[in-house]
Amino acid sequence: MRKYLLKRILYLFLTLFIVATATFFLMKLMPGTPLQNEAKLTASEKASILAQYGLDKPVWLQYITYIVGIFHGSLGLSFQFSDQAVSYLIGSRMGPSMQLGAQALVVGVIFGIILGAIGAIKKDTWADRLATILSILGIAVPSFVLAILFQYYVGLKLGWFPVAGWSGFAYTVLPTLALAASPLAETARFIRTDMVDVLSSDYIELAKAKGLSKFGIVYHHALRNSLIPMVTLIGPLAAALMTGSMVVENIFSVPGIGEQFVKSILVNDYPTIMGVTIFYSALLCVLLLLTDIVYGIIDPRIRLSGNGD
């Protein structure tokens, strides 16, 4: 177990290194410079600013400097916010993003499970078809489209929730719903397929032969067995949430990491782009690792320590 964990953690760092490298060079390929919006600056002023941030050096040197910096635990300084540390920037904006992400995940997974289970139990009925259509819509419609629709109809027309901003729970409702659609749909699809399989398995047959009620069978046997593989979905779902949150945070003016990320890309704030990318990658890798560990704990078949508890 320990060996396995060590190996996984090693891979995690390797992954992050590759991500950092790829992002660095991709970023250099982006059009524009950090100074493109500062038209008033003279050529020499520009040159001195570039020199100040080391941007006048050859790209490979910049790369090495950056990687060395990371190993020293520094993500560099932001260009756009007069020398704020990127790590501080991320830290100060993490709260809203994590809250939105967690809320969307919980809402999406819970309702996804319900929708998927209904689909499986009522297989090939109108309820199943409705559930399928809903989940296809949820997967096909991007979260930013939903965000705009919710903002306009629920926020503006109906006025049930604030249209944008971040000062209280009511402000989280619409962005959460917009973000929750995709995990909800993914979960529903996954649970439906999985549960249809489970419901046709021999141990469900045995549960029926015991005389258990329909509810008893689903609750005590089918659900647990379909939920276990669900754990593997949490990682990808979280990843989808992160990408979704970038645009959705922007639309609802949520002061989160995603919103910051989009702004940074627009002004070529290299250190911030790099920092956020590495932060998100690390988060995702850790989530996937945790998922595997949790999977091992809840599925007795692959539980690594042999006995009962």
């Binding site: 398995s201 021999d202 141990y203 047959e205 647990r224 067995n225 276990i228 599925d299 007795p300 078949r301």
Partner: peptide, 12 residues
């Protein structure tokens, strides 16, 4: 049932 390998609930 026929197949004891699959007729018990693996998670209970």
């Amino acid at each position: 049932f026929q197949d004891p390998m699959t007729s018990l609930d693996p998670t209970m």
